[in-house]
Simulated scan of single mutants.
Amino acid sequence: MYRSKGAEISYNYTRSNGDGSTENISGKDDLTIQYIEIPLTLKLFTNEVAPGTVAYFQVGGSLNTKVAAQVNDKKVIDSEKVIKRFNIFEADVLLGGGAEFQMGQSTKLFAGLTYHRGLTDIDDFYEKRLGDKNISIKNNSVSLDFGVKF
C-alpha cells in the first residue's frame, strides 16, 4: 500500500549549555512523508451477521519504507535532502474491523476502519538539534478501508 503521513511539530525548548547558561529554541515544522507499506495481518471472519454480510477483525503489523519526504513543503533545506533526516524503515501495529457484503456470485464489497500505531521513531533530527535523547516521533493513523473483491 502507498500511504502519505504527516504532522505539524511545534517546539519551545530551553536547553542548558555546559557553561551554566541556557538557550531558548523554538520553531514549527510541517512534516510530510510517503511510505510503501507491507501489511502482515491475520483477518478473522464471523458467521453471517445478516443475509450476505459477515464482519471481520484484523490484527497484525506493517513494515514500511519511506519513498519521499518534505519539511515545510521543501525537499531540500540548507543543501541537504530532507529525505535523509528520516529513518528508512518504520513499523506499525495494526488493528481493524469492518464488514463484507456479498453482491453477486463472486463479487464482494468491504468497508472497514483500521488503526495504525507507530512502534519506531521516524526521525532523530529533533533529538540531535535539541540535545535530548527522550524525544521520539512516531506515526499513528486511522484509515477508512473500502474495496471490491471479485
Rank of each mutant, 00 (worst) to 15 (best):
G52Q: 07
S26V: 02
Q34I: 07
F57Q: 12
D73E: 14
L119E: 07
P51S: 08
D29G: 08
S106A: 06
A69K: 06
K43A: 02
G52F: 03
V82T: 10
F86C: 04
E80D: 09
K43I: 03
E37V: 06
G20W: 03
G104A: 14
N17W: 03
F125I: 09
T41I: 04
T22I: 06
H116A: 03
I38P: 01
N47C: 08
K43S: 07
P39L: 10
V82M: 05
Q34W: 05
N47M: 12
F125C: 08
K81F: 09
E37I: 07
G96P: 06
E48F: 13
T14G: 02
L40F: 03
G112S: 10
F57R: 12
Q102D: 12
G27Q: 14
L63R: 06
N64R: 15
G18E: 06
L113N: 01
D78Q: 12
T32D: 04
L42Y: 09
I122M: 13
D124Q: 15
V71D: 02
S62W: 11
G52H: 03
N47Y: 12
I83S: 05
Q34E: 09
G61I: 02
Q70R: 15
T41E: 00
D78N: 15
S26A: 10
T46A: 11
E100W: 02
G97M: 13
A91M: 00
D92L: 00
G61N: 13
L63V: 15
E90I: 01
F57S: 10
L119I: 14
G96V: 04
E100H: 00
I88K: 15
A69C: 09
Y56T: 14
T65S: 15
L119F: 08
V54S: 13
N72Q: 11
G27E: 13
Y13M: 06
V54M: 14
N17C: 01
S79H: 09
L94H: 03
A91L: 04
I33C: 11
K75N: 11
Y13E: 05
A99Q: 08
G98C: 02
K84V: 07
D121Q: 10
K84M: 06
A50S: 06
A68Y: 09
E37T: 11
T22N: 03
L94W: 00
T107F: 01
F110Y: 05
F125D: 09
T65G: 14
A69L: 06
K43G: 09
